[in-house]
């Protein structure tokens, strides 16, 4: 059974996959696999740019979106003419000759990757370039055109190690996608620690971050710019406390990571020296 593995950390957003898909499917009729993709409006493979955080704590990533070729594909549930089928290699294909354009699959797909073609009155989506695979290609066009090896395709067995660390999109829907993502951007909490009395950043301050629900604890030290980053956090509420010898410990609670968090410049103050 085939799988896609998409390593977001490797993707520099070059759009080759998006354009290769266009090149392969626009103006080319690959019936019985697929009718031509329209010039515009449909993206069977689409690169989404995300920029998160706020200056100067900003990260940028690109996430390629495509049909997830789900094991439990919602699109197959309500297809009136039974036009959607799963191949032996696991790819999910809409038979363009059977599709009656009822649009149920377009509505049922939680990933928004099935498009409706008004001219042909057809639902259309990624076929995994099954027409090429059947001709002997080892990978679809998008994977072939990937300049950074961020997109890979092959037997599930070959990718065991990657899959063990991977995530799928909306796992909670129980669709069991065959597209696995590595290094999807998780949330971060970042900030800069400084001493306002001397107007200097503090290097080596110990920062602790705790997930208030699970109790999981992370620790980092501020770098040469007084900066700290907690990366790859799940969405949740966190407490952060800042400790440094000679300084008052500072605590911040209920920091939500629904969005990435830049706590900005955080002042910490020297301990009061009480005369003996």
């Amino acid at each position: 059974m085939k799988v896609f593995v998409i390593d977001v950390a490797r993707c520099n957003g070059c759009y080759n996959c998006q354009i290769a898909c266009k090149d392969e499917h626009v103006g080319n009729d690959w019936t019985p696999y697929a009718k031509p993709q329209p010039d515009t409006g449909q993206f069977w493979m689409k690169v989404n740019e995300t920029v998160h955080g706020s200056v100067p704590k900003v990260k940028m990533s690109y996430v390629a979106m495509m049909c997830m070729h789900c094991e439990n594909a919602p699109c197959m549930n309500n297809c009136q003419p039974d036009a959607i089928y799963r191949r032996e290699d696991g790819l999910v294909v809409i038979d363009p000759e059977k599709c009656t354009g009822c649009m149920n699959c377009v509505d049922d797909c939680p990933y928004g990757v099935i498009y409706f073609n008004d001219d042909l009155m057809l639902a259309q989506k990624c076929t995994g370039c099954a027409h090429l695979l059947d001709k002997g290609w080892s990978v679809p066009r998008c994977v072939d055109a990937c300049a950074t090896d961020a997109l890979r395709f092959g037997e599930e067995e070959e990718f065991k190690a990657e899959i063990a660390q991977a995530q799928v999109m909306f796992a909670e829907y129980g669709t069991s996608p065959r597209v696995y993502y590595l290094n999807l951007p998780k949330k971060f909490i970042a900030g800069t620690i400084f001493d306002p009395e001397i107007d200097e950043v503090l290097i080596g301050a110990e920062i602790t971050c705790q997930n208030e629900k699970t109790g999981e604890v992370f620790k980092v030290k501020t770098d040469n710019f007084g900066d700290f980053w907690f990366k790859n956090l799940d969405v949740g509420d966190y407490s952060v406390w800042i400790e440094m010898g000679g300084y008052l410990t500072q605590t911040m609670e209920h920091i939500s990571t629904i969005k990435d968090v830049n706590l900005g410049d955080i002042p910490v103050y020297k301990e009061v020296k009480v005369a003996a």
Binding site: C14, Y15, N16, Q18, I19, K22, D23, A145, A147
Partner: peptide, 8 residues
């Protein structure tokens, strides 16, 4: 490798 302008 190529870029999108050559693919198109």
């Amino acid at each position: 490798r190529l870029c999108v302008r050559c693919l198109a």
